[in-house]
Amino acid sequence: MNLIRAEAERLAARRFVQLMVLLLMLAFVVTAGTTLASSHTPTSAEVAAAEQQAAAERSVIEREHARCLARDRGEAWAQDRNHYLPADCSEIDPVVQGWSPTAANYLTDVFTFTQQAEALLYFLVAFLVLFGFLVGASYIGADLNSGGVVNLLLWRPRRMTVLGTKLGTLLGAVLVLSVLASVAYLVTFWVIAQVAGYPGPTDATFWADLAARWGRGVGLVLFATAIGFALATVGRHTAAAVGAVLAYLVVWEMGGRIMMQILDVSRPDQLLLSNHVGAWLAGELRFWDATPCADAFTGYCNGTYPLTWHLAFVVLLLFTAGLTTTAFAVFRRRDLI
């Protein structure tokens, strides 16, 4: 417990951590201020006009869907070849797609919470991922580089305990900061929408979806933090972690992608971590693979395949756990000179 307290204090006292928190707050203030300044509470006339537009658009979509279904049933009125309809009618089914126009889509210069919440959350998650990775890497990297770990080991000569406590304290601190920052962030924008914008239609589905994305976002922040910590532990330096990520992006995400295209590797997108990160955050991403359609010269061929957050979770978890285990194994045997 003493070690955790000391590590938490050491972490909070780090200049880099303080700087990153300051940047987070600055980004928060700038975003909120800009939003507040550029938004206004819509008048009842604006809302009514927007609702009218949304209703009209919804009826167009529903009509197109109905026509598509009629075409599939063979009804004559829907057989116009000059009128494009997708082969799969579910593609334009508003219920299946989970989206249909609302008044919020037609309000100009109005901050609409339900429209913007997802993008705002992703921005915050992106910042927190960067924060977690850099703080995680510098926390142990600077300690290894400066001899801080050696000092600590002279007091507590248990390497696994010391490194484990450092990682645990780091993850705990980043989790607390992420939760507090994201809650404060979303609540602030919710309030802005109430007083100077438009909250939009919120229901249980909206909140559940937002909560799920938020939870996965915070999870991604923890993955990034652990990865930064592990890479810096293996490389003994903060820069080693940054370098490893850059090397991965250039070598595998760019070079590997090109090589896989040349070699016609099946479903190459599922071999790239960035896609799993996207799938984890979004819940699901769909990619197109030409392999199953190679022989389909005529007719419809659906070559898409999904990457779900379930698979992404397993991949990210295994990747993070593998790196972390490696870091602990290396640190356990390393000569600290």
Partner: peptide
């Protein structure tokens, strides 16, 4: 602070 952190860590 440097010493205090060590003291806390070492009980």
């Amino acid at each position: 602070r440097t010493l205090r952190l060590l003291a806390v860590a070492g009980g």
